[in-house]
């Protein structure tokens, strides 16, 4: 298993050609591969700014979005990205498909491959499900979020957004606050941020933290703390995570009120961060819970930019994977 130290070692290793069939997480990406994605996304962003926002690079490529869990932005973002590259897109959800009739995940992805799917973008409630799918199909699998494990395209679009504002992330202090334990966004962000040399702090109520992920390495570090007011001190960027309201019923937080008092990203707290610090949120937001509306829509917020960048980053990923598959 990769720990934080090995993670960084592998991130420092060379080459910059995309060779992977799938994108399942950011944990095994080298720094060079991450840079390649970011550079490609920059080019895609330029494509998106042209008068005609569509190209024909992926003409004849079939992309299936297979969503076992609900999603607005991720699915729409992938669909727009695939179409912007000229791919054919088929959208499937668990309801209204043979999944409801008890079809296994393996059979479903094999069927999609037989129908002609080149790439399957999937979201699933079970951590690890895309790994199972990827092992059993020749189609490329792109993880659109699995359980509480990983959400690699979100992490890459977050990184893309951070980089556009901060430049190098070397030594930058990035705070991720909220329900980190149950967050696939936080995990995937941790791996990319470590690879790029950031100092990451995971912060939230003690019951919602993955304490064993704390560690230090040659390029990056990960601190885990439940003290938000100290954690945010001097931060270059703060990412607030959605608090699922069922955490209160599950006995993990005493009350929403107490959560807001201790962990809401508001103007007072943001004032403790470095001047000009960025505010991020992967969405969907519970405004007034994990983030104050004034901060969510304030000058420091790059939340809408994240969403826009998501399309460019997903275009880059679909493009690189298609290239590795020999589709040009």
């Amino acid at each position: 298993m990769l720990d934080v130290a090995e993670q960084t070692a592998s991130a420092l290793a060379e080459p910059a050609v995309w060779r992977h069939k799938d994108l399942l997480d950011t944990d095994t990406l080298t720094r060079a591969e991450i840079e390649l994605i970011l550079a490609t996304a920059e080019a895609m962003r330029e494509v998106r700014s042209r008068p005609v926002t569509k190209v024909a690079t992926l003409r004849g490529v079939t992309v299936v979005t297979l969503f076992y869990e609900q999603s607005t932005r991720t699915r729409a973002s992938f669909e727009v990205a695939a179409k912007a590259l000229g791919a054919d897109v088929v959208n499937l959800t668990a309801t209204g498909s043979s999944v409801e009739k008890g079809e296994s995940l393996i059979d479903t992805v094999r069927t999609l491959e037989a129908i002609g799917a080149d790439m399957v973008v999937m979201r699933h409630a079970a951590s690890g499900a895309p790994y199972l799918a990827a092992r059993h199909t020749g189609a490329s699998v792109v993880n659109g979020g699995d359980g509480r494990h990983a959400h690699p395209t979100q992490a890459l679009l977050d990184l893309f957004t951070l980089r556009r504002h901060l430049g190098s992330l070397e030594g930058r202090k990035i705070v991720i606050v909220g329900d980190v334990l149950h967050s696939r966004v936080a995990r995937s962000n941790l791996w990319t941020l470590l690879a790029m040399g950031a100092a990451v702090t995971l912060c939230g109520p003690a019951t919602l933290l993955p304490w064993t992920l704390a560690g230090r390495s040659e390029t990056g570090s990960c601190d885990v703390t439940s003290d938000f007011d100290s954690a945010i001190e001097g931060a270059d960027a703060v990412m607030a995570l959605r608090l699922q309201t069922e955490r209160q019923a599950g006995g993990l937080v005493p009350s929403l009120r107490e959560y807001v008092a201790g962990y809401q990203l508001n103007a007072q707290r943001l004032a403790r961060a470095r001047a000009g610090a960025l505010v991020l949120h992967p969405g969907p937001m519970n405004e007034g819970v994990e983030i104050a509306p004034a901060v969510a829509h304030g000058l420091a917020s790059v939340i809408e930019e994240q969403v826009a960048n998501g399309v460019a980053v997903r275009m880059a990923i679909l493009y690189l994977i298609a290239t590795a598959r020999g589709v040009r």
Binding site: M1, S127, G128, D146, G147, R148, R187, W211, T212, L213
Partner: peptide
């Protein structure tokens, strides 16, 4: 429950 479960999101 421990390092591996937290790493794998299980």
């Amino acid at each position: 429950e421990g390092q591996v479960s937290e790493r794998l999101g299980l």
